[in-house]
Design a binder for these strands. Structure first.
Length: 572
DNA sequence: GCCGTTTTCGGCCCGACTGTTTTCAGTCG
């Protein structure tokens, strides 16, 4: 079985961790991390690229050496350098790097002096008071380590973006209420609309910085103050979410917003551009010598480099800077571009609203159409429809449409793709529908070849219009199924089938990077809310966020089209 | 280990906070 990109990235990341622990050249460590990042962001399978004779050294951050090492991993499934590193370094030692406050130097120091080799060793050493006497450590550091370990927060926890939206709103409101506060913005991955966030980075312009910091560190939700400075403070909330607050002067607001929005990789790329022009870019502005020449707003920073303002969602160093320089950035889709929703459940299966209620809610959103796509019979737990019940629903929707004006309900179904790629309902009944959404809800564990063939076989059925949540992933709970995406994209384009970007916060499937690749492959994307109640149609905004991160313009998305054009596409 | 509009060698983003130090190293983002 071919080695997955994710596995290659993990190996490179582990090499970086172990090299760091050995005190290797930090730039060499960085090179491995950079390569791991490049690899995990690829949609094309590296094994396939090598088989096709492509030169991996063309990829950013990968040179001749790492291209060779990746080829070795693909060939043999392992990497000699990694094996050597593992033999030299206790494997559990790398886990210590995950403890806040512990970096490579401290881990090595504790390993050398106290023979600490694991998290348990570290916990015991801290509990027994042996760490305070190690040179470079003290009582406070020891107490902090013990506290981190006993609170069980060492495993990195990321939150779904949708989960923290409300909290972020409360924070902004509470901080904005401090007298003299002029700007409060949540930057970071939250502003980039990344599917998960590890923490919140809040930025403020304040008349009374000390007062704002005092308010921030004493908010009722704060469980622990990690740092409390004049311009920077960090807290951990009761739900374990870390929040950092920075207070900056107004003339630096744009620079700080840019800096704290990131991504880190994007910032580094911008700083390098500055460096080449003899400019220093930091969170206070852009400086030529001592003189600040930009920084009050973000646009001014980009303008300095001859670039249009790059939308936060694109700032991942995935080609956006080159595209901005060439004036080829896409005009990203917005919510107002949507004319309808193509994946919604009614109370006929596992939804909570009737088709009539869904129609009313869709109309309130300004939609021209909405597809009712209930589950098929195979999904018993969802009260999936068999042919008879589906025909009854078809007749009911026909009647309903006769009574509606300004909105059209499309007759649809989310039909199960069975293990062999056949569909859960026969062609004759599916043929009576306006739109057929096909989806996998079982056997996510097939090998990549079999899984890809299963999807393609389903798309071979001419009634199928959309492939729903293609990878099947559930963020933090279920890994994406293994697929040859390049093949899948080609098959979808050839057959006139759209791939879905499912907007449910835990799905967001296709993921952003795959949307970008699908777009480049000429595949049409359908954004579906997968709402199970009339009040949840608005969930589609989460899909919009990811569509923008996936470089999609309105023209790339099926449900921005007027009804007549949509119907042309659905006719295949 | 990567990379090139000063370079195929010699660089490699930049600043805040903490804790342990007496002027700074380590960590973090």
């Amino acid at each position: 079985m071919p080695v997955s990109n994710a596995a290659i990235a993990r190996s490179l990341e582990e090499v970086a961790d172990l090299l760091e622990l050995e005190g290797a050249n930090p730039f060499r460590v960085r090179a491995y991390r950079g390569a791991a990042r490049t690899v995990s962001g690829l949609s094309q399978n590296l094994s396939a690229m090598i088989a096709a004779g492509e030169d991996l050294a063309e990829l950013p951050g990968i040179g001749a050496d790492l291209a060779g090492k990746i080829a070795v991993i693909v060939d043999s499934g392992s990497l000699p350098l990694l094996d050597e590193l593992r033999a030299r370094t206790p494997p559990a030692l790398a886990k210590l790097l995950g403890v806040p406050g512990m970096g490579p130097k401290r881990v090595r120091q504790l390993n050398a002096v106290l023979k600490v080799e694991s998290l348990e060793d570290l916990r015991r050493a801290a509990a027994e008071g042996r760490i305070r006497d190690v040179p470079g450590f003290g009582e406070k550091t020891e107490a902090n380590i013990l506290s981190e370990l006993t609170q069980g927060l060492v495993e990195e926890k990321r939150f779904l973006l949708a989960e923290v939206e409300e909290l972020a709103g409360h924070l902004v409101a509470a901080l904005s209420a401090v007298p003299g506060t002029r700007e409060v913005v949540v930057a970071g991955s939250f502003r980039r609309r990344k599917e998960t966030v590890g923490d919140l980075d809040v930025l403020a312009v304040a008349g009374d910085g000390a007062g704002l910091m005092e308010r921030f560190t004493t908010l009722p939700d704060v469980a622990r103050v990690l740092a409390h400075g004049e311009t920077k403070s960090s807290v951990r909330l009761k739900n374990d979410l870390q929040v950092d607050l920075r207070v900056v002067p107004a003339e630096s607001f744009g620079a700080a917003l840019h800096y704290f929005t990131g991504s880190k990789a994007h910032n580094i790329a911008i700083r390098r551009m500055g460096q080449k022009q003899g400019l220093k870019v930091n969170e206070y502005g852009v400086f030529r010598g001592e003189e600040q020449i930009a920084g009050a707003d973000e646009a001014g920073i980009y303008a300095l480099f001859g670039l249009p303002e790059i939308p936060p969602e694109l700032r991942e160093d995935r080609g956006e800077i080159a595209a901005a320089a060439n004036q080829t950035l896409p005009e990203l889709i917005t919510v107002s571009d949507l004319r309808g929703d193509l994946h919604v459940h009614s109370s006929d299966s596992d939804g909570r609203s009737s088709p009539a209620e869904l129609a009313a809610a869709a109309q309130a959103l300004g939609y021209a159409y909405l597809a009712v796509t209930d589950h098929s019979k195979r999904l018993g737990v969802a009260r999936g429809l068999d042919a008879k019940r589906l025909r009854a629903q078809i007749r009911a929707i026909d009647d309903l449409n006769g009574a509606l004006s300004g909105i059209v309900l499309l007759k649809g179904c989310e039909v199960d793709i069975l293990e062999d790629g056949s569909l859960d309902l026969p062609d004759d009944v599916l043929g009576e529908l306006d739109v057929v959404v096909a989806a996998v809800h079982s056997r996510f564990d097939l090998g990549p070849q079999q899984q890809t063939e299963r999807f393609i076989r389903a798309m071979d059925r001419r009634c199928v219009n959309i492939l729903a949540h293609p990878t099947g992933r559930l963020i933090g709970r279920r890994k994406p199924c293994e697929l040859d995406l390049e093949k899948l994209f080609a098959a979808a384009r050839e057959r006139g089938v759209a791939l879905e970007l499912n907007a449910q916060p835990a799905r967001l499937d296709l993921p952003d990077i795959h949307c970008q690749a699908a777009r480049e492959a000429g595949v049409v994307i359908a954004i579906g809310s997968d709402a199970h109640a009339a009040g949840r149609l608005g969930d589609i905004r989460h899909g919009l966020d990811q569509a923008r991160r996936g470089w999609l313009a309105a023209a790339d998305v099926l449900n921005t089209r007027p009804l007549t054009e949509l119907k042309r596409f659905l006719a295949r």
